[in-house]
Design a protein around this nucleic acid. Sequence first.
DNA 1: TCACATTTGTCCGTATGTATC
DNA 2: AGATACATACGGACAAATGTG
Lengths: 251, 251
Amino acid sequence: MQNSKALFSPIREKRTFERVSAKIKRLILDGVLKPGDHLPSEIELARQFDVSRQTLREALRILELTGFITVQKGGSGGPLIQDTLMNSISNLYLDAFQMEKITIEELTVVRCDIEKSMLNHVIDKSVEADFAALEANLIEASRKIEDNQPAIHENIEFHNLLAKASKNSVYPVVVGSIAAATRDLLTRLIDETLSEKGFSEYDENMVNTKVAVVSHKAILAAIRKRDKKTAVQLLEQHLHEVGNRLKKLAK
Amino acid sequence: MQNSKALFSPIREKRTFERVSAKIKRLILDGVLKPGDHLPSEIELARQFDVSRQTLREALRILELTGFITVQKGGSGGPLIQDTLMNSISNLYLDAFQMEKITIEELTVVRCDIEKSMLNHVIDKSVEADFAALEANLIEASRKIEDNQPAIHENIEFHNLLAKASKNSVYPVVVGSIAAATRDLLTRLIDETLSEKGFSEYDENMVNTKVAVVSHKAILAAIRKRDKKTAVQLLEQHLHEVGNRLKKLAK
DNA sequence: TCACATTTGTCCGTATGTATC
DNA sequence: AGATACATACGGACAAATGTG
């Protein structure tokens, strides 16, 4: 199926906007155009490629969604080369998860599996700077709790920081996507049930937030000691707690 | 960051084509529009959303690139809803690879980690029907090899079937996308080296295909025996071979 | 086989809102 | 505050491709 296309291929003449976007993309990949550079305006680009504005705009949409450029309007605005490609992958994962109608249980299981594997790399590869970042995250989370605010964002960020500490650029994408999908699914469920249960849930959320931070602290301590067995065990326990909490919220 | 946007938000009014594409996307995600369905024509859609055709086309470009739809010209053509986003994710991985945001090694490591975890679920949850599907895949692959054709598609499909056998719908998405990325990477690298070095490489590729099928057979046998240790070990070895082959082709 | 209707692909001109200087 | 530069959006038009009768 695919290989027949790969072997003979060019049967289908590509559309103009595809050729334009491919051309610009190649300039970026070859390093001729670098992140931070401004592209000429739409009008100027259309003129140089000798295509209409509409065609050029469709090419820009492709580059924008793929994560190669962003577009700013207004004076001295225009297409700006930027590298948000890894974010684009995460967004697509989010769509793909939503498309498969997956459950929170399934997400939790896979998340637990993957983060456990990742943690092994973290313990092998992490350096002092990673510890510092994780430490700062925990301090910020504690501060928020002192102020009686749920540190939801910080708690998610902790896992993203772990992913970065694995020194493997694929892990942040995969782990981040699953975390985002979990959060997305959860907020949707909460929106549905909030009108019924009201704010009685609020205190419970604060308790859960605190528990999570305590777990995170213990995990970081184990990582610092390069104690794989304990770290993995703590992480597994932590993620199962999170999973159970989510399940309770879901119904 | 995110929560500030969630709390106050609407500062930046989204562009029209973004709202249109989001609307259609939601209809697909909610199951109102299903894979295989035809969307109305551009003109009709533009009329219903009360936007210009240019705006609508930009929305369609987004949906097309994201993998939600394909577009066909001509009579009884139009936007057609698709059922998988795998190829889109795979394409982004390829871009990330070309941008040197990720390496072959990193992708291989993560794939290996994830598929190993997945395999544990497969051994716990797989039933006779899964074995039959895997068996059929191996037979088809062998047949192609008999015909002196590389069974690249079948070899990737083996991993997708494994993912399905885990009975967790998250795994097919994650594993499928990474497997598709390695497949595309592989075919591209083969195409490149083939044009340079000629047909001497062809035989080597056939050998590698055969080796992969042999590995798959061994893995399936271990799964049938519910022998986790052997199965995981074989899978790890197999995926490392694939990774090494990619690395060799890359340089 | 051939003509026809449908639909995408592409172009042009124009108007409007918005950010920058 | 005003002028400029830019993306955004609209409408109309024709060409090219493709399935159908």
